[in-house]
């Protein structure tokens, strides 16, 4: 329902607007929905607005699940 693409913040114009890049695309985005953003932060952008800062880690649950998948499917039985 909601297309959102990661962007890196290149410049902060004021507390509402920033220049951000998604690969080779540079666009002006709104940053006022996520307080405290800094240059270099990677944010998810939906409809021209940053909606959250992205973390680098995938989180524990994903790691654990992957481990189980490898154990299960890698060997061919549970």
């Amino acid at each position: 329902m909601c297309l959102a693409i990661p962007h890196r913040i290149l410049r902060l114009f004021d507390d509402k607007r920033a220049l951000a890049s998604a690969g080779p695309v540079e666009t002006e985005i709104r940053v006022d929905l996520v307080p405290g953003l800094e240059i270099g932060d990677v944010v998810l952008v939906h409809a021209g607005f940053a909606i959250e800062r992205l973390l680098e880690e995938h989180g524990q649950e994903i790691e654990a699940l992957w481990e189980e998948v490898r154990r299960m499917a890698g060997t061919g039985h549970e």
Binding site: L33, E52, E56, G59, E61, L65
Partner: peptide, 13 residues
């Protein structure tokens, strides 16, 4: 289960 940990915080935004 939360499998989108990079973007989703338990408390949301």
């Amino acid at each position: 289960a939360s499998l989108y940990g990079q973007a989703v915080r338990a408390e949301g935004n």
